[in-house]
Design a protein around this nucleic acid. Structure first.
Lengths: 243, 243
DNA sequence: ATAATAGTGTCTCTAAGACATTATGCG
DNA sequence: CGCATAATGTCTTAGAGACACTATTAT
């Protein structure tokens, strides 16, 4: 085949931005659950108007793929120093975009809430909690999205964006046990329990002797939690390079 | 950004086709080493003319990504029933193709030699042995290509195709221990030693008690090898679903 | 017989699974 | 004080690493 305009295709670029946060409970005697959140935007374009979707858009022909994603990420969340990984390219379905043939290169970004202070959250840009359905091997097969304190539940997103979220979670699930990706989702200081809860939210099952597992990948600081109706927990930091 | 021709980019599609084969040694008392081979084609196009490259080409705007890859694979190798997996999309470098901006969606295919009988090997389409350089974690950092009985050694391929091969091997390396991908590279009947050699060629290090490791993922047949200057080895088959 | 690889057995050591126990602040 | 969670300890079991030993064919 020749190099000409006939071979050109519209290329989009979508980002699954994940973070973790404590879900506030009503009283101090109850566990504050911690889980995963994903950033969604309500579409203003003519297709899938007012439908929630992943942040993204068309790839600029003058920018590299990663560069372009970084750019969108900075524009959307204000942060530039995040964990970014290419997920997969979606292009088997010729009509995944009603406007015509579009393939999309999906990325996954892991962010800490503290780094996201510049992000403006409103009625068109918001964090949604993930509720996941898993198979017997703990792989995510379906996901739904909800907001804290609201009845709204999204069972689907625009385009094939739901599948991208599913693929993203399965990707970090497969990496969480032999890499240090979890820490990209944690704030600077965290308790062992916080870390374990996020870890288990990703894996989809309970782990035993968690402290033993993470070994010296964390360093204890001299800070502790206060205000809880029980023994205070020590705050830890990520120990890069630890085993 | 709007949906128009400005957002269109040339999309290519390259396939890393791997297989395994015994490297013939000169006498029967020597080990017949078994390793990985990759299918390369010598380019006829105006760019990188006469340079060895991965089989591929531009994506047809009327075909799905996987469909398009399958099509090329069938056209090139004659087989349709292979393990196929999307690898990664290459598009950070704006000048990776001298003709202009092209992104490439790379796939990896694993084939058995017996299924490849329809493949016509000549001076422009050939199997090359892989010689790999690894880091201390056994990840492949560089690769070179050579043909049996020839002095020719390729230290690079056209475009960024060498990197695709490196990424492909690291991908199956990460999968070989917890999935059954190895068997996609093996012929119908194989000895434990053959399997172990391929397994180790992928991993980059020696494994102990291999028979114990693969457990009942293999079933012993009543066939044995003959003609070797030592005790004959039992031939096994892949036991799909075994643990 | 002997070279050479096939195939099995076994000993050790580490890591995971599953709990039990002790510690400590808050109401 | 007693509730609730933090943090550590311990017992058991499964598997990995390393290697020794036995089996079987060709020359």
């Amino acid at each position: 085949m020749e190099f000409n305009d006939y071979t050109k295709i519209s290329v989009a670029n979508d980002v699954v931005i994940l973070t973790s946060e404590k879900e506030i409970q009503d009283n101090k005697r109850t566990v504050a659950k911690q889980g995963l959140q994903v950033l969604l935007v309500k579409r203003t374009d003519s297709t899938y108007t007012n439908t929630w979707a992943l942040p993204g858009g068309f790839v600029d022909a003058d920018k590299g793929l990663t560069e372009c994603t970084m750019h969108k990420l900075k524009e959307k969340t204000g942060l530039s120093n995040v964990y970014l990984e290419q997920l997969k390219t979606y292009g088997d379905n010729l009509v995944r975009d009603p406007r015509g043939r579009v393939i999309s290169v999906a990325y996954m970004a892991l962010a800490t809430k503290q780094g996201l202070s510049g992000l403006e959250v409103n009625d068109r840009t918001a964090w949604f909690w993930l509720s996941m359905k898993r198979d017997n091997k703990h792989n995510v097969v379906d996901v739904s999205f909800y907001k804290e304190g609201e009845d709204l539940v999204l069972n689907d997103l625009a385009f094939d964006h739901k599948q991208m979220v599913i693929d993203a979670i399965n990707r970090i699930k497969n990496k969480v046990e032999y890499t240090d990706v979890v820490f990209s989702l944690m704030p600077r200081y965290f308790t062992i329990r916080d870390l374990q809860t996020v870890y288990e939210a990703i894996l989809g099952y309970q782990v035993y002797s968690f402290r033993r597992r993470i070994g010296n990948k964390v360093i204890q600081t001299n800070k502790v939690t206060t205000g809880d109706a029980h023994r205070p927990a020590a705050l830890f930091e990520y120990n890069q390079g630890g085993k």
